Computed example of a mutant assay.
Amino acid sequence: MKIQQGDLLTILVYSDSKEATEIFNQPQQGGGGGASGGGGGAIMASMGRGYQVDKRGEIYFHNIGLIKAEGLSKLQLAETIKEKLMKYLQSPYVTVRFTNARISVLGEVTKPGIIEMPDQKMSILDAIGFAGDLTPFSRRDNILLVREENGKRVYTRIDLQKAEVYKSPYFYLQQNDLVYVEPTRKKPTGSEQVLMRNIAIGTSIISVVTLLVTLITR
């Protein structure tokens, strides 16, 4: 995934010197906790914590200044920060994580809603799985994907029934993507569902009565 405007990032810095490293790490939320392990401090990036990518695609890193983050991967940004820290720290090591990476899955799925993205890649099939799979009334050949690219909203249709879906640039999702699964035209209305249920119950009763009559008349 590429870093976008509005993303909130958790950035951890480690080095051979715990004291020197703490200058470059945000304080642990809640206080009372020092850095642990590897000579690094801890970050709790939530609600006012972390590094938010501004409208220019930059973050402000303590003691370093503005750093261009938009368009980079987590590893690329970590390497950029590491290079800038070389003159301050011995053997610096940097990790970057997304704090607010999420997608929305709506429409004909069992559990529509917002899904928090894991650190590893998430495909559209993974997202549908997290949403409880498609319902019997979903269109598998015309799933809508909405994505923000370069400040513009892009609409893409995906056919899960074709093998080409695995080669699509939209097979793997990005943060803030929206997946909408359309219903089929055959989906019954509320009254039709009640009618179908009543027919099924009536058919079952008739079958039982027929069986009883057959057994009695033998």
Rank of each mutant, 00 (worst) to 15 (best):
E164L: 07
E148Y: 07
R157D: 11
L145C: 07
Q161D: 15
V146T: 11
K167H: 12
R147E: 03
L144Q: 15
Y172A: 03
L173Q: 08
N150I: 03
Y172M: 05
G151H: 00
R157H: 12
Q161A: 11
N150F: 10
K152A: 12
V154H: 11
Y172R: 01
L173K: 07
E149L: 12
N142H: 12
G151T: 00
Y172P: 06
K167V: 10
L144C: 09
I143V: 07
Y170Q: 11
V146M: 09
G151M: 00
R147Y: 06
V154T: 13
R153L: 10
E149P: 02
I158R: 00
G151S: 01
D159C: 05
Y166A: 06
V154Q: 13
K162D: 09
N150A: 13
N142T: 10
I158P: 00
L145S: 02
K152L: 10
K152T: 14
Y166D: 01
L144R: 11
A163G: 08
P169K: 03
D159Y: 04
K167W: 09
K167M: 11
P169W: 03
S168E: 01
V165D: 03
N142W: 12
L145V: 15
K162W: 03
D141N: 15
V165P: 01
R153D: 06
S168A: 00
K162A: 10
E148V: 08
L160K: 04
K152R: 15
S168R: 00
D159E: 03
T156D: 03
E164M: 05
K152E: 15
Y170W: 14
L173Y: 07
Y155F: 10
V165Q: 03
D141Y: 10
T156K: 05
V154W: 02
L160E: 06
G151D: 00
V165W: 02
F171N: 04
Y170F: 14
K162P: 01
R147K: 07
Q161T: 15
Y155W: 04
F171W: 05
N150M: 09
R157V: 12
Q161L: 14
Y155R: 04
